[in-house]
């Protein structure tokens, strides 16, 4: 039972990292109808810039702030220069964002060097404690906590503030939102920046979790995030949390109980969901 509990905590922690990446992706797709295959690049840039600030200052929290700022700035630049000219054209979006993903990964090597980088959690987040017979690793619990905080705060903003209402309305019918006096282009940029910042935060949290970071990890996590977005329902924020947790847990359990299936489990999960609920677990509101 304690093994099962440990696997669950591991799965939840991985799920939360994927959620941070997928949450931005789902909002960007839902609101802006943009298929952003470069989203994983923002994850990896968050990881490298955050670890760089962390190494430079010795402060893990400043590292997190650095990653978030990197995400916000990169998000603004990418939305303005790369995404804006291809709104409404999925083929162009796929081509240009796939290209951007490669550029972002290679630029990591130019800026931070070609080697993998090691990262450790700050001392106060290292180690573990026992609850009964179960060993709980502090850093994993920290990731789970951060994931839920990000979910809670973002949900609150989406539900209780006017900008949140506008984003939710925009996901359902962006044309109508404009005719109500909302500058949707500004909202697009804001959502893209926030999505990029969430991905960058995920990357920074990932660094001490895996111990090493490398330029190609964005692509690996980017694919997972896309699976999560499809399972959760494209455009659904709550759906992305549930789907990310499902994917994280499925990976953790399968890797231990059925290792042969561990690589295929996400695709299987997506296939099952698509067969029974083609619109994903959560359906975004009708127009």
């Amino acid at each position: 039972m304690d093994l099962f509990f440990s696997l669950t905590v591991n799965g939840l922690a991985t799920g939360m990292l994927i959620f941070l990446l997928a949450a931005g992706l789902t909002l960007i797709f839902g609101l802006m109808d943009v298929l952003n295959f470069a989203h994983g690049g923002l994850f990896v840039w968050g990881a490298f810039s955050g670890v760089w600030v962390y190494d430079l200052t010795g402060s893990f929290w400043l590292g997190i702030v650095g990653a978030i700022i990197t995400g916000l700035i990169l998000g603004a630049i990418i939305e303005y220069l790369i995404i804006r000219p291809v709104y409404g054209n999925h083929v162009q979006q796929i081509l240009i964002t796939l290209g951007l993903m490669l550029v972002l990964s290679e630029l990591i090597k130019v800026v931070f060097g070609p080697d993998q980088k090691a990262a450790t959690a700050p001392e106060y987040l290292q180690g573990s404690f026992m609850v009964g017979d179960v060993i709980l690793i502090k850093y994993r619990l920290f990731i789970i906590l951060v994931g839920f905080i990000v979910f809670g705060v973002t949900s609150l903003i989406l539900k209780r503030t006017r900008i949140g209402l506008i984003v939710r309305a925009g996901v359902m019918n962006k044309e109508m939102v404009q005719t109500l006096g909302v500058n949707i282009r500004l909202v697009f940029m804001l959502v893209f920046m926030v999505g990029a910042a969430m991905a960058a935060l995920g990357g920074m949290l990932m660094a001490p979790y895996s111990g090493v970071i490398y330029a190609e990890m964005g692509l690996e996590f980017g694919i997972l995030a896309f699976i999560v977005v499809v399972i959760g329902g494209m455009g659904s924020f709550s759906g992305s949390l549930l789907a990310a947790i499902l994917v994280g847990l499925a990976q953790a359990y399968m890797a231990y109980y059925v290792p042969a299936l561990s690589l295929a489990v996400n695709m299987l999960l997506m296939t099952v969901v698509l067969i029974f609920r083609p619109q994903g677990l959560f359906r975004v509101g009708v127009k």
């Binding site: 209402l165 939710r168 309305a169 359902m172 975004v284 509101g285 009708v286 127009k287």
Partner: peptide, 9 residues
């Protein structure tokens, strides 16, 4: 014409 109601709101 289609009223443009935000269904989830």
């Amino acid at each position: 014409e289609d009223q443009g109601i935000f269904g989830d709101l």
